[in-house]
Design a binder for these strands. Structure first.
Lengths: 334, 334
DNA sequence: CTGAAAGCGCTTACAG
DNA sequence: CTGAAAGCGCTTACAG
């Protein structure tokens, strides 16, 4: 292994000077710099990142803390992860995956000193992991939000997204619009509450009572939502989904119950990928999640924080993008 | 920050002894050990992983080298990634994501000394990255295979999988079976060739000429395959897909051309997730890829290699699992 | 069974 | 503008 000492010897300088040149931390005479750069080139030297980390007490590694995604990983999640990895890499950072199940394990990892900061996925309304993170004194950025006065976060702008979805349906003449979300368990993702209130807000001017259906993010959940829609809310002419995993099941379920999409029921699925929309028959109108961008922004926001960049917005909110498919049409005549 | 020195002082021993206790590398008198463990507990000490890495020249970090997956990430890929992360973590290793586009960047990263070994995804038939990896002298495991005499790898057993798919269709009475794969570009994934030859092998006893259709792994690709099937190979009564991304498009396309699934054409999609099958209408019969297991096995194989574990099988091949849906039935009467 | 000490390969005040 | 030296927090022969 070629070390900084080898380079220093070849260039007839001290290792300190080599370090200054590599890091650009101090001005070095042009001739000296040239000698050092030549030596680096000739020896094909690469600075050892571990030694650098120990000496500078900065590892330039970020952790992505996430629950077990092996099973229920949806398409937006991977886009998010890859966006974060890409964003970190471009700034010279590495991203480690930390599948953590319990808070103790998380604290343990955090205390090891491997990472300079953390990205926390799937943030829930009251999230004990956030407390642990705060206690660890490690800088971090949330993906999603907890309560109101939040630490730095990036998130989908669900309020705007839901409003636009409702607006799109209104533009087609719909007035009785249902919402399909996920169940609010003790530790629901913070977004459920936000989505619901945005929905209530958006349909208020229409003068019809709300219809909220919460089901698991699975095909079975989607079919259950279809049944609820047809039986409990038969007057609804359109539905907004904020439940990626249930989207396909809902459409299949609705059609299995003898109702056509969009002739009898218009469907719009928010916070999913355009690819999902294309897979379903009829092609689903979706609001595509800005997952890759959010992943990248999350990494960048954290790095800005670590490097003390000024004027960096502490938090970012991005809406989804409407991608019209064939699942929205005019409401049926009665 | 609490260091090993703090622990040593409190327990009245040298830091060497603390190290022996923590790592279990040398026997230590029970009383001494107890004192040290108590001190660790009281001070809530955690060994610094960076210092350990530098001193032991083992970082216990693995790299996952992958192409840009931001856009075309399919469901099996994320399962694979998460499986690898999980497997590494359970053995006390960390997994960093390295989105690498060009070989130089890869060599550069490899030379930094951050990782003890690498996992290479999406291996192609002739893959220059493998050469770089060999040149770096870093241990690695491939996901997928290149040519014949391969370095250690884990892969889907495509031969067995395709045979089983054909067998399943034969069990339903099909004899004219087509194959849909991906295009063989200059750098095709190594699996395409394997899949094709397994297919040729499996249908040989049926006595009908092969029908191979290669399309992109997208909805558009799937529709193109549907057209090719209906127009160029109208006598085929069943199709085996080894093209996750084209699966939905193929079914939609076939139905759009007025042919029913499975009444006119039976469809089986290999190396995908069961979730994908459920999303499509009619529910697709799939051969579910053992992606989470393969990810885990890849990490474990690499770690075994790093730790010099004996009797560890150098390479692993796992077939997919049949998950019956509603897309396979008897061939149409003519 | 335990300790003193060298060393891993860098960074960073400090001095000149 | 450059260098000598301390130090980051561990591991690991070596000695006793």
């Amino acid at each position: 292994m070629v070390t900084m000492r080898d380079v220093a010897e070849r260039a007839n300088v001290s290792i300190a000077t080599v370090s200054f040149v590599i890091n650009g931390t101090k001005r070095v005479a042009p001739e000296t710099r040239a000698r050092i750069e030549a030596a680096i080139e000739e020896l094909n030297y690469r600075r050892n990142v571990v030694a650098r980390a120990l000496a500078s007490s900065r590892t330039r590694i970020l952790a992505l803390l996430h629950p077990d995604l092996e099973s229920r990983a949806n398409a937006t999640v991977i886009q998010f992860v890859m966006g974060a990895a890409q964003g970190a890499r471009e700034r010279g950072y590495d991203l480690v995956l930390w599948p953590v199940n319990d808070d103790d394990q998380m604290s343990h990892l955090l205390a090891g000193g491997l990472v300079d900061g953390a990205l926390l996925m799937e943030v829930r309304f009251r999230d004990s992991r956030v407390e642990r993170l705060v206690a660890s004194r490690l800088p971090f950025t949330l993906i999603g939000r907890t309560g109101d006065d939040d630490p730095p976060y990036v998130d989908i702008d669900f309020a705007t997204t839901v409003h636009q979805a409702v607006e799109h349906l209104r533009g087609h003449g719909h007035e009785r619009i249902a919402l399909v979300t996920q169940p609010r368990t003790g530790h629901e993702p913070g977004r459920i509450a936000r989505v619901e209130s945005a929905y209530l807000d958006a349909i208020a001017p229409l003068g019809h009572p709300p219809a909220v259906i919460a089901v698991e993010g699975t095909s079975a959940g989607g079919r259950e939502a279809a049944r609820a829609l047809c039986e409990e809310f038969p007057e609804r002419t359109a539905v907004v989904l904020v439940n990626e995993g249930a989207s396909a099941g809902l459409v299949k379920g609705v059609r299995a119950l003898g109702r056509a999409v969009p002739a009898d029921l218009s469907v719009i699925s928010a916070a999913t990928t355009r690819e999902l929309g294309e897979m379903i028959e009829p092609s689903l109108t979706v609001m595509a999640a800005p997952a890759p961008q959010l992943g990248r922004l999350a990494a960048e926001a954290l790095i800005d924080q670590l490097e003390g960049v000024q004027d960096a917005p502490p938090s970012v909110l991005l809406p989804c993008t409407l991608v019209p498919g064939e699942s929205v049409g005019p409401p049926p005549r009665r």
